[in-house]
């Protein structure tokens, strides 16, 4: 009778047996787990050195993969930056050359960077340096393969600029605070906080219309003859990595 009932099970369709099988598994799983738990724990203790070796290996792999991931993230970021620079380069009317920042002046007095392009790449003194966000500075010195770029925030930098909204013209120069100052605006100049400042065609170095930064403060001179503006540069100059040198000649 038992044999017959067992044999008949073979002829039943598998979907009818499936729930039965899982009930059986559920019923047996708990006691099996309860019995095997102490045994497994003992095994773990006995083979701890193997587990530890594996842990060390995995830790090494994890560190390697993490380092690679960070490297890849950096590559992606660089790729995005270069893509933006390329888009900007295409939009420029002038011919330009891309350069990487390879050094920085460590002094508190000056804001200068060294780039990896020089005379051999047709870079000359006075050429404007820009990136996708706006004006960076201008070339101050050149050698065959390197150039020195004086940044917008260096006290020795100056260029003619205008307020985009009201077309008021002034002279933008650097300060020691990492900001720029727009001088020689007339006393009744129409300038407000938040106004955008761009390069003027009066500038001997820069083409017209390049974004310099935003006005963050307006200072009226005590003598009442002129107004000064404090400008926050559009480019975060402390994070410069790639720039474009515009060949204006």
């Amino acid at each position: 009778m038992i044999t017959l009932s067992v044999v008949s099970l073979f002829f039943l369709p598998s979907r009818m047996l499936s729930p039965l099988k899982f009930k059986f598994i559920a019923g047996t799983a708990l006691p099996v787990r309860m019995i095997s738990f102490p045994l497994l724990e003992i095994k773990k203790i006995l083979f701890y050195h193997r587990t530890y070796a594996e842990y060390i290996k995995l830790q090494k792999d994890y560190n390697t993969l993490k380092a690679r991931l960070i490297g890849m993230e950096e590559v992606i970021r660089e790729n995005n930056r270069l893509e933006n620079l390329l888009k900007f380069k295409r939009s420029l009317v002038y011919s330009s050359v891309g350069a990487s920042v390879v050094g920085r002046d460590p002094s508190n007095w000056n804001e200068t960077v060294i780039i990896d392009k020089g005379v051999l790449d047709d870079v000359a003194v006075g050429m404007p340096a820009v990136n996708a966000q706006g004006v960076v500075g201008k070339v101050a010195e050149v050698s065959d393969r390197k150039s020195k770029v004086i940044l917008l925030t260096d006290p020795g930098f100056s260029t003619a600029a205008l307020v985009k909204r009201s077309r008021e013209i002034g002279l933008v120069s650097g300060t020691l605070q990492g900001l720029c100052r727009m001088r020689y605006l007339s006393a009744n100049a129409d300038v407000n906080v938040g106004d955008q400042v761009i390069t003027s065609k009066l500038s001997s170095s820069f083409p017209e219309g390049l974004f310099i930064g935003e006005v963050i403060a307006v200072e009226h001179k005590k003598n009442g003859l002129s107004v000064d503006c404090i400008i926050q540069p559009a480019v975060p100059l402390s994070q410069l990595e790639e720039i474009l040198i515009i060949r204006t000649r």
Binding site: G103, P106, N110
Partner: peptide
């Protein structure tokens, strides 16, 4: 060294 990296007149530092 400092003058070489600076954009100011050479010799100040």
């Amino acid at each position: 060294f400092k003058d070489s990296f600076s954009a100011g007149p050479f010799g100040l530092y």
